[in-house]
Amino acid sequence: MIENNFFLLNLLFLIALSGCTSKDRQSLKIASDAQKIIFETDIGNDVDDALALDMLYKYIDAGKIDLLGIMINKEGIYPPKYIDIMNTWYGYPEIPIGIIHDGADCENDATNYAKCVSLMKKDNEDPMFQCSLKDFSKLPEAHVLYRKILAQQPDNSVTIVSVGFSTNLARLLETPGDNFSPLTGKELVAKKVKLLCTMAGCFNNPDLYEYNIMKDIPAAKKVFAEWPTPLVTSPFEVGIAINYPATSIENDFEWAPEHPMVEAYKCYMKMPYDRPTWDLTSVLYSVEGSSYFNISPVGKISVTDKGATIFTADKSGNRYYLMVDSVQAEDIKQHFIQLISKQPANFK
């Protein structure tokens, strides 16, 4: 049964990835077989979110995904402004953005590279990077935007990639029917979502309480217990085994003198430094499937009151977590470098 469940899960990825074609850049038509992705991020807390977002734009360029929306679970004006800068710079300003109110307190957890990049100016005092939106306060709340987007999609078609806190997802599950759909949030997710892939948890050290879980433990408990579709998580121990190298940031982007992801990396910590690729691994699995990873048996994942994540093998479950060995870690790192340092299709 474990092997059968695993085979069926990966068959969905193979079907979605087969025969991808390029999209028309002018009309922004999406290939019919492109995977439908929604990205959930705490952009501005750790720079791996910015690198993961770069990957998603490259997958759009390749015709592999249709990025339906970007949901933010870090409060403030600068996270959505940075996302808008990224959307605009990479040539996809139309991608919807959802924001959060009354979210987790994380403003002082790290250097806010989203703010740093948003405030950068050229020598003539013009903004270094252009925006497409005028008023970020008018953006919809993420759990509302989720409902709008999901209601418009075919059944069992959407993959949600969540690399931040679980707050928006928990709020989505709790939503009642509305003008977008008569279904409750949980019913809507069960009908429209095929997979939730998260960066969360830790399974090789019971005393390590992973950041994305800890910032909103009640929400994480709810999502891991109640989310109605298969859930695959990339835990702390996977991303920390794969470090994006500073040498790439310093040497591989000469084609772009002003690059919002590169500037974010340089803002986040004193260069040179290598950074774990936690969020990137979730994106990689969601889009390219399981070939880069080892996968746990099928089971259930619970979150304790202190924020630990516990996996229990169970044939009746639909939760999995990723693992890597040293050879896989090196292969993934090289793949990340190749993909991220590639010039975007819309770069001018």
Results as ranks from 00 to 15, higher is better:
residue 72 I to Y: 01
residue 143 H to R: 11
residue 118 S to C: 14
residue 263 E to W: 04
residue 124 N to M: 06
residue 283 V to C: 12
residue 148 K to W: 00
residue 243 N to D: 10
residue 144 V to Q: 11
residue 71 M to C: 05
residue 318 N to F: 06
residue 99 I to F: 01
residue 123 D to V: 07
residue 82 Y to K: 12
residue 7 F to K: 12
residue 13 F to A: 13
residue 310 I to K: 07
residue 41 T to C: 03
residue 320 Y to D: 10
residue 315 K to V: 05
residue 348 K to C: 01
residue 61 D to I: 12
residue 258 E to M: 08
residue 306 K to E: 15
residue 169 L to P: 01
residue 58 K to M: 13
residue 118 S to V: 11
residue 149 I to G: 11
residue 250 E to H: 05
residue 31 A to F: 04
residue 213 I to T: 15
residue 247 T to D: 12
residue 247 T to K: 12
residue 261 M to V: 15
residue 119 L to K: 12
residue 330 E to G: 07
residue 99 I to Q: 06
residue 121 K to Y: 01
residue 180 F to G: 03
residue 326 S to A: 14
residue 311 F to R: 04
residue 105 D to P: 00
residue 287 V to Y: 04
residue 180 F to H: 14
residue 216 D to V: 08
residue 45 N to M: 06
residue 234 S to W: 02
residue 270 K to W: 00
residue 15 I to E: 15
residue 245 P to T: 11
residue 298 V to G: 03
residue 227 W to C: 05
residue 317 G to N: 06
residue 130 Q to P: 00
residue 131 C to T: 15
residue 263 E to V: 00
residue 189 V to D: 07
residue 57 Y to M: 13
residue 253 F to A: 11
residue 321 Y to S: 13
residue 234 S to M: 09
residue 35 Q to T: 11
residue 268 Y to N: 10
residue 16 A to M: 01
residue 284 L to F: 03
residue 131 C to Y: 03
residue 345 A to L: 13
residue 254 E to Q: 08
residue 34 A to F: 04
residue 111 T to G: 00
residue 209 Y to T: 03
residue 57 Y to S: 10
residue 230 P to D: 13
residue 294 N to M: 14
residue 66 D to R: 08
residue 85 I to P: 11
residue 313 A to P: 08
residue 22 S to L: 13
residue 261 M to Q: 03
residue 241 A to N: 10
residue 174 E to Y: 01
residue 220 A to T: 08
residue 214 M to G: 06
residue 79 P to M: 09
residue 187 E to R: 01
residue 42 D to L: 12
residue 162 S to M: 09
residue 41 T to I: 07
residue 39 F to H: 04
residue 161 V to S: 06
residue 143 H to I: 01
residue 182 P to Y: 10
residue 9 L to F: 04
residue 113 Y to T: 01
residue 321 Y to N: 11
residue 14 L to C: 07
residue 282 S to D: 08
residue 57 Y to G: 02
residue 82 Y to A: 09
residue 259 H to V: 07
residue 195 L to F: 09
residue 177 G to N: 07
residue 188 L to I: 03
residue 85 I to A: 12
residue 14 L to H: 12
residue 36 K to L: 13
residue 208 L to S: 02
residue 307 G to L: 05
residue 27 S to C: 04
residue 5 N to S: 14
residue 114 A to R: 06
residue 67 L to M: 13
residue 145 L to N: 09
residue 288 E to I: 05
residue 202 C to I: 03
residue 249 I to R: 04
residue 149 I to T: 09
residue 153 Q to L: 09
residue 112 N to I: 05
residue 172 L to P: 05
residue 19 G to H: 08
residue 49 D to R: 05
residue 346 N to P: 00
residue 304 T to D: 09
residue 333 K to V: 07
residue 238 V to Y: 10
residue 220 A to W: 01
residue 78 Y to L: 02
residue 124 N to D: 15
residue 18 S to C: 05
residue 85 I to W: 04
residue 190 A to H: 05
residue 252 D to P: 00
residue 132 S to F: 10
residue 340 I to N: 08
residue 38 I to M: 15
residue 210 E to T: 01
residue 257 P to L: 11
residue 221 K to T: 09
residue 255 W to P: 05
residue 11 L to A: 07
residue 204 N to P: 00
residue 165 F to V: 00
residue 44 G to Y: 06
residue 17 L to A: 15
residue 302 S to I: 01
residue 213 I to N: 12
